[in-house]
């Protein structure tokens, strides 16, 4: 009984702010196109999908998140394998180093990142955001993948090499299938830190290439169409919901401090 009440209170606490947004997203809050204020329907969603800059923002966000996930996992896999399978001079120092980068506040680095990336021509492009988000996502990806690789018996490596597999073919044909859930979990945690991030996303998109977060910010003005803002917000939740659903059975693996 107490447990059910606790769960109910939790659900209420989490869903209330979202309920408000979902409700508002179906209501016309700014009279336009002959629609009266207070009319209910899908008008806000239609308006969001009809706006070219908002559509472009969704594409930009999708591009940088996918790039970031691919980059993080491709770079984290060999590192995680090394940490899980070998001991070497400075292994603990490496773990401490990635922890330091994970906890470096983005605001601290925003200024030099902007200067460096404008020299490299990476401002206003999703590639720049994808790169810089590796700062906090790569450590997380390494921690998660390392724990999954550690859980795979070493015999898998040994039989594969005895069977004559090269390093690359072992990685793709044996290791990756064995830790596929780990890749999913790593992708999930990278996603939740990257899709919603605003500090780097703002500083790196001055005039173009704005992701969803910045496109929503740009919708605020003298007369803000709150219904449309909320419709855009609700749409921006969909990829996250998809990710949660995909990894639901492996979410419970989490990650732990390695230092």
């Amino acid at each position: 009984m107490i447990r059910a009440a606790g769960l109910l209170a939790l659900a209420l606490f989490i869903l209330l702010p979202l309920a408000q947004a979902v409700m508002l997203s179906f209501v016309v809050t700014l009279p336009k196109d002959g629609l009266a204020e207070g009319a209910v329907g899908l008008m806000n969603y239609a308006a969001v999908l009809a706006a070219p800059e908002l559509r472009a923002a969704m594409v930009n966000s999708a591009v940088y998140v996918v790039l970031n996930l691919l980059l993080c996992i491709a770079v984290a896999l060999p590192a995680a394998y090394a940490l899980a399978r070998y001991r070497f001079v400075g292994d603990r120092h490496f773990l401490l180093l990635i922890l330091v980068f994970r906890v470096t506040p983005p605001v601290v680095l925003s200024l030099p990142i902007f200067i460096l990336f404008s020299k490299l021509g990476l401002v206003n492009s999703p590639v720049g955001i994808a790169l810089v988000h590796c700062l906090f996502n790569l450590p997380v990806a390494i921690w998660i993948l390392e724990s999954f690789i550690r859980a795979v018996p070493r015999a898998l490596d040994e039989t594969a090499f005895l069977d004559g597999h090269s390093g690359a073919s072992f990685f793709f044909r044996h290791l990756i299938p064995a830790i596929a859930p780990g890749i999913g979990v790593a992708a999930f945690f990278c996603f939740i830190f990257s899709w919603v991030e605003v500090v780097f996303a703002r500083i790196l998109t001055v005039t173009a290439g704005k992701p969803v977060t910045m496109a929503i910010s740009a919708m605020f003005g003298f007369q803000t169409d709150m219904g449309m803002v909320m419709a855009m917000t609700c749409l921006s939740l969909l990829p996250g919901l998809g990710m949660i659903w995909l990894v639901r059975n492996h979410l419970a693996r989490g990650f732990t401090l390695r230092a």
């Binding site: 659900a11 979202l18 917000t233 921006s236 639901r248 979410l251 419970a252």
Partner: peptide, 26 residues
């Protein structure tokens, strides 16, 4: 419990600049 976990993970995928807007609205 998986449903509870998914519920708890929900706020993690909300864009950070919209979280204060949701609460101000509430």
């Amino acid at each position: 419990a998986i449903w509870g976990l998914m519920l708890c993970a929900l706020p993690l995928v909300v864009p950070w600049n919209m979280i204060p807007m949701l609460w101000l609205g509430l």
